[in-house]
Design a protein around this nucleic acid. Sequence first.
DNA 1: CGAAAATACTTAACATGTTAAGTGAATACG
DNA 2: CGTATTCACTTAACATGTTAAGTATTTTCG
Lengths: 172, 172
Amino acid sequence: MAKKSTDPTNGSAPGARQVPMRDFSRSLPMSLLRAREAVMRQFRPSLREHGLTEQQWRILRALASIDAAEVTELARTAFLLGPSLSRILRDLEARNLIERKTAKTDQRRSMVSISREGVKLMASVAPSSEAIYAEITQRFGARKLAELQEMLGELELCLASVDARDEITDDA
Amino acid sequence: MAKKSTDPTNGSAPGARQVPMRDFSRSLPMSLLRAREAVMRQFRPSLREHGLTEQQWRILRALASIDAAEVTELARTAFLLGPSLSRILRDLEARNLIERKTAKTDQRRSMVSISREGVKLMASVAPSSEAIYAEITQRFGARKLAELQEMLGELELCLASVDARDEITDDA
DNA sequence: CGAAAATACTTAACATGTTAAGTGAATACG
DNA sequence: CGTATTCACTTAACATGTTAAGTATTTTCG
């Protein structure tokens, strides 16, 4: 019990503990996580009504914009790891929302494309999805949203360069 | 095959498909996801060396800053759902990194606190964690980082109000 | 050519995210 | 006082995140 703070922000507690670290709830990873969760919370109910998870929806969207893609390419576009993508594609194929055929020139690769049914499903989800996005844009402000995305992109970029350096270090 | 774009940014494809949606890779959820992943990619190796996952680390950090907390309170602080937290606490307890005891006044609640071992582990991880954070701050710019976090907080806030409205609607 | 290395996935195993249902303890209230 | 409801968690079930290992195909190169 003691002085159990009821304030969730856990403000600037003066009696610091053994490890004097940055206020936990204000760390960048937490800020990003919470912001993303706040956004996704808006979309999930609509997706759920259509029997889609967030990731499945990402894949369908990606496929709709590129006709056909190899699995690796799709993983990069939908920002999913290979194993996750493998599982999801298996399920989407079972539901006849996508189609696959192995490439003729290279039997290792398989070309994935969205099926007619998949297109139909997308068409049924897209309107509400767009409406939600529009509401978010309006609430937050279109200009501010653009600024935010700009900063997020820069953050990603400046950290990607760190990764590149590490990869070189690994090779050496 | 056809005109399979090699460009991962999937630029401003002129020949739009059936569903004319916002460029997928530039959606807000994707921007947030990629930014967060770029950040976490910096921390994960260090955590892994110490045998901790990102979420376990979040819990230990949260506990270190508040001495003892109820599970529900901890879930809010570490931004984890109840079921996830339940599992993780079970594991952390088995590793003797945390301690639990049921509250005397209310047998339903259990008070969780970090153990001596947990504090030791934190102390061993904190330095490298702080160093990584410092490098990110330096690379991105302290002022810009503060701006970004400010915007993320505003985004979260303006969407939280939407949720509140929905909850009222649900009750009605 | 043919064995070694690289490539494009897929499987496996374990941890977490997400929703629904279950359990035991405290409250509300008739 | 007793029962229905609420509350604080926990379990269950299924989907994904994450790393490592496996499989089949292709390339590389001696």
